[in-house]
Amino acid sequence: MKKIIVSICVIGLLQSCIVSTATKVVTGVAKLGYKTVKGTVKGVSWAVSKAKGKIDEDRIDGTWKIVGVYKGDFEAFTNDPNPESSFESECVEGFDQIIFNSKKSKYKPVHCNTEKVSWEKYDFEFGKNPLTKEKENYLKINSSNYISIIDINNKTMILEGALIPKQAFSGGKLYLLEKIK
């Protein structure tokens, strides 16, 4: 009888340890999830941590749809308790997009899928960005425009800088793009 009572007590103790450990793991994962993703726009998440190290240039290749613009820089975004997208597209049909051809180091912004815009040359670099003075991945467009690549994956890309002049004049500096091709 003593063995059965001791066995039940041991099982109860182990079960409570497992439950408390599982609770700690879930809480830790929830905190980690909050630190790596902050808000969504149309189901696309804004990342809040900069890419560590050099990004492969081929990752920017393709057609990217602009789905969000944050009025402020990356530092203001990370400190904002409730960041929201302030992007309002003027497109009745279609959407604003940017097409990157990494093999030729060229890109072109296309307004509402219709405007014919010529290709512009860029330099993809990893090092000390002359504007931010930080070591990061960035695009050098012309000789004076620097666009920081905050984060990129196979679905989204976040860029910081004067990417779209019309948005930059109204304070937009952080751009969320979704890959469509």
Rank of each mutant, 00 (worst) to 15 (best):
V117E: 07
K104E: 13
S170L: 12
K71F: 13
I147T: 09
T40C: 02
R59P: 02
V44D: 08
F126D: 01
K54I: 07
I4Y: 14
C17K: 05
K106C: 02
H111V: 15
I164V: 14
C91K: 04
K128R: 14
C9A: 15
I8Q: 06
D123R: 14
F74M: 10
S148I: 07
K128L: 09
K42M: 07
K2S: 09
F100E: 00
V25H: 08
S148V: 10
L163P: 00
E90D: 08
A30V: 11
S89D: 01
K50N: 05
A168E: 08
N82A: 14
A22N: 06
G68D: 01
Y122Q: 06
V25A: 06
K31R: 12
Y175G: 10
K104N: 13
G72T: 10
E134F: 04
T156Y: 08
G33A: 12
L14G: 01
D123P: 02
K181M: 06
L32M: 08
K31C: 05
G94P: 00
I11V: 15
Y70V: 01
V41P: 03
T63L: 15
M157C: 10
D73P: 00
D123W: 06
S143D: 15
E88R: 07
I152W: 12
K42R: 09
I4W: 14
S86P: 01
D56W: 15
I147L: 11
K104D: 11
V110M: 03
I141W: 12
E134A: 12
V92M: 10
I141R: 12
V41Q: 13
N137K: 13
V29P: 00
Q167P: 01
T132L: 09
K2T: 10
